[in-house]
Structure formats: structure tokens, C-alpha cells
């Protein structure tokens, strides 16, 4: 679906993205994981031409994005921002309907789609359709941001730290509802985050980034159990226990706590 070849982007003397290549399959969910400043957001923004690469080639669905009009390209790519980026002068309903409107959908179709998405994201339409963004909580605003990105059924969804600005409890709740969206099955998702747990929870494949390059790529299990180098090992060390526990998928909490105690006492 997405094909990235030898992409480089330099800001002044700083190489934000250094000759990166990768591809993402149809409907695949990939996560770019890394500390802030590793170049992951720059990489993401080059996919919908918010930033133009210095060199290299990106194609989506077999078409080079360079050859498309940026507006047309972007209308086919959903985008979720860390700080929601909702239009403060548009109601919730209007915010969700922005891209369908740009695409010239009929009003009834937009209304139906908006309503459908609001229900799926647990925003009762009657209560919130005419509300303003500032009247909503942070978690609700982020739900609207997700609905807006998905409104026109884009084949590709880009997410920039989509849950990063939320408190842990809200984050878990929004993430859960997000994961349950049936839209996601057919959507190719590229998500960037510094949150290891988030990456493990959402990713089919993880790209671990450092200093503008991809350090390791693979399934979550591969990264966790077969770290490809010192950086990867260190990156997961702190949360290894939780991650491993989550991978094992145990719901036996007392057993987990015993295991955790044991884990803490054991030198490693």
C-alpha cells in the first residue's frame, strides 16, 4: 500500500530522516517508535506531503505522491493530531464532516456518516452534534479527531501521537474504543509514538527509530524477545516485565503480581 524508498530530510545541519526505506502492506498497522527528535513525525508528515522530502520516493497504492495534487492526496489520507487540531469555529458535527464536504458528498450522506462515527466513538450524536470543541473534554475531543480522520473512509490513516496528550485512564479508554472500530480492518495505519505500550498494543509491525534511521523492524514479539542490538534492548528494558506479561496475555492478576515481585527481586 505504502512504499517508501530512500527518503531523506534535512533541517539545516540536522538530518531528521536519513535514507529510510520501508513498505506497509494493505490494511497493515505499523508503528514508528522512538524518542522525541528521532525523526518519526517528520517521516509521517512526508507521507501526506505536509513536509516534502529532500530526496527519495513515496508511493501510495502504486502512485507516486509527488505526481498528485497535494489537496487531492490529503483528502484520501486520514490524519490524527496529538492536539486534535479541531476547528474551534466548527461544531462537532461540522468538524467530522470536513473532508466529506471537501469531497462534495451530499449533506444527508455526510450527516449519516457523522452520526455513525459519533455512535461508534461513544459521542451521543443528539448531545454532541451541535456542541463546540471547547465544550468537550480532552478525551472526547480526541475521539472527534479520530472520527474526523476516518469520516471519508480513507484507505490510509496517519496518526501522530494520537493519545499522547491524554491522561493514562482516558488514554486507555479512547484507545480501546479506537481498536474496536471496524473501519480499521480495511485501513492501512501508520502511527508514530514514543509510548512503548501503545506501540505493542496497536502494531502489527513496529519500526524502532533512532537519529533518523530505522534501528530494527519486526513484530512486537520479535522486538521484545529478539532485540537486534544494544539500543533496542535498552529501549524496552524498563518496561520489559509489563510488556512480556501483556504478550503472554494473562488475566491471572494475583499470579502476575507474584511474578512481578519475583521479577523485581531477581537481579538481571
Amino acid at each position: 500500500m505504502i512504499e517508501v524508498k530512500n527518503i531523506t530530510k534535512t533541517f539545516g545541519a540536522h538530518k531528521a530522516v536519513d535514507n529510510i526505506s520501508f513498505s506497509v502492506g494493505d490494511g497493515e498497522n505499523v508503528v514508528f517508535l522512538g524518542t522525541s527528535g528521532c525523526g518519526k513525525t517528520t517521516l509521517l508528515k512526508m507521507i501526506n506531503r505536509l513536509i516534502e522530502p529532500d530526496s527519495g520516493e513515496i508511493s501510495i497504492g502504486g502512485r507516486r505522491i509527488r505526481d498528485q495534487r497535494p489537496e487531492q492526496l490529503r483528502r484520501g489520507i486520514g490524519y490524527v493530531f496529538q492536539n486534535n487540531g479541531l476547528f474551534p469555529h466548527y461544531s462537532i458535527g461540522e468538524n467530522i464532516g470536513i473532508v466529506p464536504r471537501l469531497l462534495g458528498w451530499e449533506a444527508t450522506r455526510i450527516a449519516a456518516r457523522t452520526e455513525q462515527l459519533m455512535e461508534k466513538l461513544h459521542l451521543p450524536p443528539d448531545q454532541y452534534r451541535h456542541a463546540w470543541p471547547h465544550e468537550l473534554s480532552g478525551g472526547q475531543q480526541q475521539r472527534v479527531g479520530i472520527a474526523r480522520a476516518l469520516a471519508a473512509n480513507p484507505p490510509v490513516l496517519l496518526m501522530d501521537e494520537p493519545f499522547g496528550a491524554l491522561d493514562p485512564i482516558t488514554r486507555a479508554s479512547v484507545r480501546k474504543d479506537f481498536k474496536e472500530l471496524d473501519e480499521l480492518r480495511s485501513t492501512t495505519i501508520v502511527l508514530v509514538t514514543h509510548d512503548v505500550q501503545e506501540a505493542f498494543e496497536l502494531a502489527d509491525r513496529i519500526f524502532l527509530m533512532d537519529k533518523g534511521t530505522i534501528v530494527q523492524q519486526g513484530t512486537p514479539d520479535q522486538l521484545l524477545f529478539e532485540p537486534g542490538g544494544e539500543y533496542a534492548r535498552e529501549f524496552f528494558e524498563e518496561q520489559r516485565f509489563q510488556l512480556e506479561a501483556a504478550r503472554i496475555g494473562s488475566a491471572d492478576y494475583p499470579a502476575l503480581i507474584r511474578a512481578f515481585d519475583h521479577f523485581r527481586k531477581t537481579p538481571h
Partner: peptide, 21 residues
Amino acid sequence: PGVREAAVAMGMTGAQRLFRV
């Protein structure tokens, strides 16, 4: 700037951004 970037990312043209945002 977040709102302006969102307007770009959503696929609004320059004129649309100017008059609607």
C-alpha cells in the same frame, strides 16, 4: 498553528483555508 496544519492535512486548498479557517 495546530488548526492551520489540520486544515492543510485535511486537504483544504489555499483559498478554502483562507476563507473557512
